[in-house]
Amino acid sequence: MKNEQAEVALPLIRRGRDQNLARLLVMLGVVFALMAVLRPEQFVTPANFGSMMRQFPEYGIMAIGVSLTMITGGIDLGVVGTANLSAILAAKLMFAAVPRGAPPEQALPYLALAVLVALACGLACGAFAGLLISRFEIPAILATLGTQQLYTGIAIGITNGRPQSGLPLLYSKIGNTEFFGLFPLSFLVFLVVAVGIAFLLSSSRFGMYLYMLGTNSKAALYAGLGNTSILIRTYMLSGLLSSVAGLIMMARANSAKAEYGAPYTLQCVLIAVLGGIDPSGGFGKIVGVTLAIFILQFLSSGLNMFNNISNFYRDVIWGGVLILVLVFNRLLSQRAERRAARRGE
C-alpha cells in the first residue's frame, strides 16, 4: 500500500484531454493549406495577413468572453449588444466633449475618459446579466437573450437607430496604429486578452472555481465557492471583454451603431464549441478557442477570395462547421465509450 502511494504522480497537470488541441491544429493546417493552394497569390500575402489581424480580434475577444460563461455551464448571448452599447456611450461622450478639429492634446484625456466609460458600461452590463442568472435564477440562455434585446434596444433608443459617425480623428488613428508596421493594436490587445485569460483559467483560484462551478453548482455551494459572486464576476468579465471588442469595432468602422456585428453572437458560440468548450460546462481551454478563431478567420478570408461565392455562404459554412464538429466530437466520444465498455463496465 505504502509503495503504491509513493508512485502517485504530481497532480494538477492534466493529460490525455489534449486530443482536441491536436485535432484543431490539424484542421487549422488543412484550412491554411487548402486556401494557400487554391488562392496562393491572394491568401499567402502580407496584405491578407494584415487584414485578417484586423478582423478577428473583435469577435475573438467576445468569443473568449462567451467561452468563460460556457465553462460555468451558462452562455452569454448578450455580448454583441454589450459591445455596441458600450461603443455608443463612448461615442456620445466624445461628441459631447471633443469639439470638431480639436488638437490631439486637448482630445486625448476625453478619449481616455470615453474608453473608461465604455469599459465601465461593459462591466455594468455583465454584472446585470450575472445578477439575473445567479440571484434571480433565470436560465442563462433566456436571461442573456433578454439582455441582448435590452442593450441593443437601449442603444437604438438613444441613437434613434442611426450610426454615430464623425468620431475625433485621433481615436481611429490610435485604434488603427500598427506596431512594427505589421501588428495592429487590436491584434496586440487580443493577444494580451487571450494569454491573460488562458493564464487565469489554468493557474488561478478563480479559474478552478469556474470549472468546478460549471461541473456541479450544488456541490460548489456546499464547498463554499460563493456561486453568486463567481457568476457575477464571470459575466462582468465577459461584459468587459465585449466592451473592449466594441471599442475595437468602433475604431475599425470609425463609427458606432446599435446593430453592428449581429452575426457575431452565433459565431462566438460556434468558436467556443469548435474550440472544445463543453456546452454543458466544466471543461475547455482558451488555447483551443484561439485555434478555433484562427480556423474561422482563415476560412472566411479565404472564401472572400472566391468572387462567385456570396458572403452569405459564410453563414452556411459556419452553421455547417458547427454541426460537423459536434457530430465528429460525438462520434469520437462514442468510440471512446465503446472502448471503455470493452475494458469493463
Binding site: 460556434l270 458572403n311 453563414d315 452556411v316 459556419w318 452553421g319
Partner: peptide, 13 residues
C-alpha cells in the same frame, strides 16, 4: 443555432 445559421445562409446565399 447551427442549423438556423445553415438555413438562413442557404436562403440568402
Amino acid at each position: 443555432l447551427g442549423t438556423g445559421s445553415l438555413f438562413t445562409g442557404l436562403m440568402f446565399g
